[in-house]
């Protein structure tokens, strides 16, 4: 490598927010190639970043971390993270095959996140928004007290500042390790959405792969507008639970974003590359009726 090349590479690394962000969210950068889970194509990691982690060959949408999502959707350098110092506790001293505290530690090491959601304010094409973005890599994006508290606080912040709120979900559901405290986060976040409704604050939800259980049954599906990302699986009960209950084979496209659209459960299904544009359009249309 020439000295010039080395400088070029270094400069590029610094400028590419997706690259920097994904490092923070724990995406594995050591691999230069990534295999598409759907069509098995070997894809250069660099190309994948350029295509927003969508397979250029088969359109498969890879699961992405919260930091990458923020880098993709918000205006560069507009994101101000809030409540960075909230950490999960272990109120029940929960222990299954591992103890909850060591699960937290592992998840933190893997994702560099304190819990399964990042919140903050930022801009989309100049429109100010309050956002909550979940990260599935942290304990399956499960909602415990921290997720519930941070989502509630960012909704309250949106109400206080009279700016639209966007929740981007990716979650297996409520966190079992906090049992009923997790269940109550569904109530808490939904009560906050009720206040946003009453204050006429626009609340948009973007459901991404996968969104299930307690998040589907609370703030996830309460959006004034509900967008499902293409390829996302979304539901209340998991596939296996349903199969065991009804003892029937389920349709192949069951609980996909497209399936939900067909049954009227979401407003639209959006490709990843169109998300930012779509959000901007919805914000702009509603901005005209918002109080000045």
């Amino acid at each position: 490598m020439s000295l010039k090349d080395w400088f070029e590479k270094r400069k590029k690394k610094q400028l590419d927010p997706a690259l920097v962000e994904s490092k923070i969210s724990g995406d594995d950068l050591s691999k230069l190639w990534e295999k598409c889970y759907n069509c098995n194509a070997q894809l250069p990691k660099k190309d994948l970043e350029k295509s927003m982690y969508v397979c250029p060959k088969c359109d498969y949408h890879f699961r992405i971390g919260a930091r990458t999502r923020i880098a993709q959707l918000l205006d560069p350098n507009s994101f101000n993270e809030t409540d960075i110092n909230i950490l999960p506790g272990d109120p029940l001293e929960f222990m299954d095959t591992k103890c909850y505290l060591s699960r937290q530690k592992e998840a933190r090491a893997k994702t560099h996140l304190n819990d399964a959601v990042i919140t903050g304010t930022g801009k989309i094409e100049g429109w100010e928004v309050a956002v909550a973005v979940m990260d599935f890599a942290y304990m399956g994006g499960s909602m415990g007290s921290v997720v519930g508290e941070k989502v509630t606080r960012i909704i309250e912040e949106g109400i206080k500042r009279k700016i639209p709120i966007i929740a981007i979900t990716s979650s297996g559901g409520a966190r079992m390790q906090e049992s009923c405290l997790s269940l109550m986060q569904m109530a808490k976040t939904s009560c906050a959405v009720a206040r946003a409704n009453e204050e006429r604050i626009l609340y948009i939800t973007l459901l991404t792969e996968p969104t299930f259980g307690g998040v589907t049954a609370s703030f996830g599906t309460l959006g004034d507008v509900i967008i499902a990302e293409q390829g996302a699986r979304i539901g209340f009960a998991g596939r296996r639970v349903i199969e065991q209950t009804i003892r029937q084979k389920l349709p192949a496209d069951f609980q996909t974003a497209e399936y939900l659209l067909k049954y009227g459960q979401v407003d639209m299904v959006c490709k990843r590359e169109e998300l930012r544009k779509t959000l901007e359009k919805i914000l702009r249309i509603h901005a005209s009726v918002l109080k000045a």
Binding site: S190, C191, V193, T216, T221, F236, A237, T245, Q255
Partner: peptide, 22 residues
């Protein structure tokens, strides 16, 4: 809440969420 095909199609999660909010 019942886990079934039709329950998913008619929005089990949404029905519960809306009740929480309302």
């Amino acid at each position: 809440a019942y886990p079934g095909i039709k329950a998913e199609e008619t929005g089990q999660g949404t029905a519960i969420a809306v009740n929480l909010r309302e």
